[in-house]
Amino acid sequence: MIKAGQIEKGTALLIKGQPFICVEREFVNPGKGSAFVRLKLKSPATGQVLRETMKTQDNAEDITVDDRDCQYLYNDSENFHLMFTETYEQIEVPLAAFPDYQYFMKEGETYRVTFWENQVLDIMIPPKVLFEVAEAEEAIKGDTVTGATKNVTTETGLVVRVPIFIKQGEKILVNTETKEYLERVNK
């Protein structure tokens, strides 16, 4: 048991028998009232999002989780196929549990995966990821408006709004939380 005030982003909790991961946490302290914490929780099994408001003094059932390294092999549009880097054992994780993760994870890369009783609770995606531009629209000639943008598609299929100077084959850094373009990386 932990106090709700100690819950942080990433804390794993058992709610009504189901594991949830805290994805957002905000303290609210009404001028006339007890201190509360507003939580956004996600069920890794179903992708269900739960909003809970708890008093910071409430007890919450936290669960002990294991972090293990897994290599992302591929997805078959139903499941992610992952492999433990230590044992080479393979597992399947439904795409629905981690929406959009197929656009952020790169085949062959290793990710830290959080487990609870053999269930995948979380896959840690770095906050910034380097992608290659697989498809880029040609910039419209004569369009010199400052701040003009266009869409490009990365090798993982992620569509990102970028400045018009970005070309196919170039590398770009993307914020995985907001899906926003950060910068071009010349290497």
Binding site: I15, T53, M54, N59
Partner: peptide, 21 residues
């Protein structure tokens, strides 16, 4: 669907759970 703790709590605390959510 809010979680209300087992022990008795004040009217205002339960109200705040609904209000803040």
């Amino acid at each position: 669907s809010l979680t209300v703790p087992g022990e008795k709590e004040s009217w205002e605390d339960t109200f705040h759970r609904i209000f803040l959510t």
